[in-house]
Write a protein that binds this DNA or RNA. Structure first.
Lengths: 395, 395
DNA sequence: TCACTTCTGCCTTTCAGTGGACAAAGTCCG
DNA sequence: CGGACTTTGTCCACTGAAAGGCAGAAGTGA
């Protein structure tokens, strides 16, 4: 079934039904400026394609009841969010409502064969539950630089073995449906733009602080990827001339000062030195420390942990202040595991940004934590592929 | 004469004729995918509107000779580039070739009434020479934040008295033609995108180092202005925690370290302290020093001046390295008076950026000096308004 | 039950665009 | 120099799509 719309009107109708939910024919006619005959024609075609279906009658507005149209209830999109240490897979309907969501810990360094197999396995479990039969498209987010056009990772630092592996090709053959592959940060930004706080904002930034640090850039409602697809790669901006050495070879990179890895490293140091009893206890219990432990310590009132977070917030704030002056966004979202550090971090970032950027740029600039959390990635992935499938941009 | 095209085809034809020059009807037919009859129809309409005219016959391609079409020779656009210390006015034909260009020193702090009058006076002189009778549109660049939609400056730091002055309204009434107003840096970026090194680059940055420091951002061939129009305002990014106090109140701003004003200030200090005999002599000759004097000193082999430029280049490079990582542009252009400092500056900037940004972003990233120099602004201004007039985006 | 409203499907009218035919204007070759 | 072939521009009949009128279906309220 080559269920692809073939014109702009159909694309508009599909996106409207996806984002605003079911709508009566009469309402659709008022929103999109089309004659009744044209509207009926295009809707008929979409019904024939199997992308739209009628769903009973609307309540009367004083006369004959109008027929309700919606995205076909059998439409299914798959979102796959591969992180450095986890895999998330979700299945949504045509309105991008999550019907099923599974997650599993995984080490991306195991390579594409193993990791993609695990993702397919999760999808298999969801299918076994009956949430999906046929799949209309799948979006995939990967934790590193991706060539969007080619659908493959390019020299990813934390994903050895993935370099130039044809993820798009492999997965579209496996799933027999359209597939798009993008950077996980971009995918999260799309998720926030679709279902999160950025819904009404055209230009915004999403800063993800996970194992590494990246930034999704949305311009005019669309992901900006730069000329070689590496836009938003802010983890290696230098913030401290005398900082620690980073995996990239330079010193003082943002990521080396406050990524998940850096935070864990500093936490271990603090525990061993005896400056933080809380972290020392955790370390002896579990044998390792993560960003979550630091968050827990700070919440429990541990001074050293609090100081670590404030310090990190200052570094993020410094970089963000520059980017805000440069990009003048309407919103900044902080996301990623480390975002669990919560309001201590947020307060520090806000204070630095508001102090260092010009009033014209910060005057009406909310800086917020992601509301979607772990689902932003998978939702964004389905949004990515649904935009593609609904646009009729043929492969 | 409401000479506005009314559809996309006409806009495409006009832009093609503007950017690629006169073309035979046959060639136009091959480039835009239109049937011969439709093409003839649209061209006829454009001729009726007075925007296009025929210009003789092309050489034969083996059969009947084709008729050449071009943008009407009577079409005139005006570009006005108001800088902190100068006014440039140029008149171009419909292909944006400069027919006349006048420049005068001026102090923007004299306020809108005086400055805009001076600009109109320059335009009057050009008209007196006969380069223009009727004017189809005018673009204006101003040295500060501009609300593009409203066509007026918003809280400009170096333009007291201009705040919310309705430049667009005033000038369009005066000139009786469509007018657009934008930040001078954006306008320069458009100029480089039209006639400079950025012609084939979709995403690039133009860093202007003049009295202040600003950055024009081009995304997908169009100026990105941000949500409140202040995007690219990089002059007040902090680069040195212990730097001098800036006019904005913060310390260590890029602009306070290496703007034209800062450079002149440092030059005077160097001259008075006796460390630079060259600058001392210049100072005693003219009673003041500018960026040009520093450039001259460096060229003459003055060690202190060279050091000042290298130091400045390092600061610019630091900021630029961050922006390159973030934005992943295909080109960076250095422009402004201070760009006269030339290759010493450029070499320093390149060295810092290439060292500090990731290979994926810098792999194919030229960093160059502006070729257009002083004309980038006026050309960009005419490009701005011609895009508007040719698009049929009615006022 | 009746007057009125809203909504949809059908049908006719209208119109812009296409593509072919034809004439005009050249080239090329014997 | 003339005829065959090529390219270009215009004219026109045809086509397909969109708009809008009309009528019937389906509702409300008195």
């Amino acid at each position: 079934m080559a269920a692809r719309p073939d014109n702009t009107h159909q694309a508009r109708l599909l996106r409207l039904l996806r984002d605003e939910g079911a709508r009566s024919r009469a309402e659709l006619g008022e929103v999109v400026q089309l004659s009744r005959s044209k509207l009926a024609l295009e809707l008929d075609r979409l019904v024939t394609l199997g992308l739209v279906e009628s769903a009973g009658l609307a309540v009367s507005r004083g006369g004959r009841r109008s027929g309700i149209m919606r995205v076909a209830s059998r439409v299914r999109f798959v979102g796959i969010d591969i992180g450095a240490t986890s895999i998330d897979v979700a299945v949504t309907n045509g309105e991008l409502e999550v019907l099923g969501h599974l997650s599993t810990p995984a080490d991306v360094r195991d390579g594409p064969a193993i990791i993609l197999d695990q993702a397919l396995e999760l999808l298999g479990k969801l299918r076994a539950k009956g949430v999906a039969t046929e799949i209309n498209g799948a979006g995939i987010g990967l934790p590193g630089p991706v060539s969007f056009r080619e659908g493959m990772p390019i020299a990813p630092p934390i994903m050895p073995g993935w370099d130039r592996f044809p993820v798009l090709e492999a997965m579209s053959q496996e799933l027999r449906c359209p597939v798009l592959v993008d950077n996980d940060v971009n995918v999260m930004a799309l998720g926030e733009s679709h279902a999160g706080l950025a819904r009404s904002v055209d230009n915004f930034l999403l800063v993800k602080i996970g194992t590494g640090i990246g930034c999704g850039i949305v311009v005019n409602g669309e992901i900006y990827r730069g000329v070689s697809g590496s836009a938003g790669d802010i983890g290696h901006i230098r913030v401290d001339d005398r900082g620690p050495t980073c995996s990239c070879g330079n010193t003082g990179c943002l990521e080396a000062l406050f990524g998940g890895t850096a935070l864990a490293r500093d936490a271990v140091v603090a525990a061993r030195s005896g400056r933080s009893p809380f972290l020392a206890e955790r370390l002896s219990e579990t044998g390792a420390l993560t960003a979550q432990d630091v968050a827990a310590a700070a919440t429990a009132g541990d001074a050293v942990a609090g100081q670590m977070i404030r310090e990190g917030g200052r570094h993020i704030g410094k970089v963000l202040a520059s980017l805000v002056s440069f990009f003048n966004p309407g919103l900044v979202i902080i996301a990623g595991e480390v975002a669990d550090l919560g309001h201590i971090l947020l307060a520090q970032i806000r204070s630095v940004v508001y102090q260092r950027s010009l009033p014209l740029a910060t005057g009406n600039l909310p800086i917020v934590l992601s509301e979607l959390g772990g689902t932003a990635g998978v939702i964004g992935a389905t949004r990515l592929i649904s935009d593609h499938v609904f646009s009729g941009t043929h492969a």
